[in-house]
Every structure is written in C-alpha cells, then in structure tokens.
C-alpha cells in the first residue's frame, strides 16, 4: 500500500530486518519507522528481541561473534549496514545508555570528557564547556558541579545513570538508544530519569527498551510490542494501552503473561 513519497523521512527505519546469532533469529523480519524527536518505547517479555533490535541501530550487535543481520536499517535514509559506513562515526551519532550504569572508574569530569577526547578535542576550555552543557542537559549539573574531580563510582545509582546519559550527550548524537535505563533503580531515581527523557526528546530521537509498562505509558509517544522476535503491534502509546488491536498485546499489557 504505497502512499507515494512522504513529506518527511522517519528518523530510523527498518525494513524486513532480522538479526541472527548464527542460524538462530533473535529478531524476525521487522519493518518499523521511528519518527524524529519522539520517544518510542519497545516493550515485550524478556527474550522477545527488543534489546537486540535496539542494538542493531548503533551496530553494537557487531561485537557479538556470529551475529549478523538481514534486511536493512536506515537512519535519515542512510543504510547504516552499507559497506561504506564507518561504525565508529555511526556510534558517535547514535548514543546508547545501558541497562546497568557503566561509568568509567574515573572522575566525573573525565567520564563526560571521554567522548570529546577520543574525538580529538584537547582544548581545556572547550572541554569545560562541553562537560558543563552535557551535565546541565542531563539535569545533574547542580548535584555534581562542586565535585567534578570526584570518582564517578562514588555517585548513587540514579546519579550514575544520569551521568551516563550526560556522557552520551557530550558526543552530541541525534539519536539516543536506552536499553532498560531504569531497571536497576529505585522509584525516585527512576522518576528523575523519566523526567529527563521527557525533556530530552525536544532535541533527540529517543528509543527506549523497557520491561516496565507503566514506564512505557508515562514516557513514550509511541510503543512497539514485540513477541518472540516479531513485531506484533506498533502504535501510539495511548492507543496501545487503551485499545490494542492485537489479542497478544492486550494479554501482555493486562499482565496475563510475560
């Protein structure tokens, strides 16, 4: 059902994408368009392939031996699995936040400055600016501005995760992938992360994997439900949570399985 050329491309667009580990497909034949400057949530029972799918957007799956894809992933229309694509450059533009906060065992400052530094920025003043703006944007500046030299590991779990978000922002990506960013945090810290996500979507396209349906309902504009590696339903979050069109989606949302 072709509707002719669209006025705008989706930010991320997959077409019949399968991700395989050896012969086993973790993601099967998924076509999905993710709009820019929105929060899109991936939900589904564990092992449904939502994380694997997410990791195909910045090619983190490449690091797993034997993993490969079929189909395509396009970001702003650029096929990111094309031969001529530089994975390192891709990852600078598609940032990722992991399930477990993973700050480097360095100072807060050095954590944020890591990305700019590997990009060759040496100038101290410039780095200072980047660090401050990244920390401000991730709403943690006021909490840490006086101890930038302190070890990042001394921060609380929630602060560490916001630090990791700041670290990703410091490279100035246009897409942020979040793989269950709040699953290890208490409700207060989770709330702060969710608030942050809401504020960030003005500037970034955010894709978040979560097993927490309330979270998906709270933060996302769109929700995709995955089951056994397949995309079951993709729609506005409001619709998914009020009037899902698939029985499986409804059963998962109402907690009958998962």
């Amino acid at each position: 059902m072709t509707t002719g050329p669209l006025p705008l491309q989706p930010k991320i667009s997959t077409s019949t994408l399968s991700v395989l580990y050896g012969a086993k497909a973790a993601v099967k034949n998924v076509s999905l368009d993710i709009p820019a400057n929105k929060v899109t949530a991936f939900i589904g029972p564990s092992g449904c392939g939502k994380s694997t799918f997410l990791r195909s957007f910045n090619r983190m799956n490449d690091l797993i031996e034997g993993a490969h894809i079929e189909g395509s992933v396009r970001i702003d229309g650029v096929d990111i699995y094309d031969r001529g694509i530089d994975v390192v450059e891709l990852r600078k533009r598609v940032g990722m936040i992991f399930q477990r906060s993973n700050p480097f065992p360095k100072s807060i400052y050095d954590n944020i400055a890591y990305g700019p530094r590997v990009n060759g920025i040496r100038d101290r003043k410039r780095l200072d600016e980047i660090v401050e703006s990244a920390l401000r944007r991730s709403a943690i500046w006021d909490e840490v501005k006086d101890d930038l030299g302190k070890s990042a590991l001394a921060l609380s779990g929630g602060q560490q995760q916001r630090l990791c978000i700041a670290r990703a922002l410091a490279v100035d990506p246009s897409v942020l992938l979040m793989d269950e960013p709040a699953s290890a945090l208490d409700p207060t810290a989770t709330g702060k992360i969710e608030e942050l996500i809401y504020e960030l979507k003005d500037r970034y396209t955010i894709v978040i994997v979560t097993h927490n349906m309330q979270q998906a309902a709270r933060v996302s504009d769109l929700t995709a439900f995955f089951y056994l590696g397949e995309l079951v339903e993709f729609d506005e979050t409001r619709k998914i949570f009020t009037a899902p069109s698939h029985r499986q989606t409804e059963e998962y949302i109402t907690g009958r399985f998962g």
Binding site: N58, M60, L63, V88, E89, R91, K92, R93, G95, M96, F98, R100, N102, P103, F104, P105, Y114, G115, V118, N119, C164, R167, A168, V171
Partner: peptide, 14 residues
C-alpha cells in the same frame, strides 16, 4: 568489565 568496553565503543571510541 565488558560494560566498560561497550560504554567506550558506544561513545564512538575506536
């Protein structure tokens, strides 16, 4: 930890 390698690579480090 593998986490640290992933963090670095995800930031666009080679």
């Amino acid at each position: 930890p593998q986490d640290l390698r992933a963090a670095s690579l995800a930031l666009g480090a080679t």
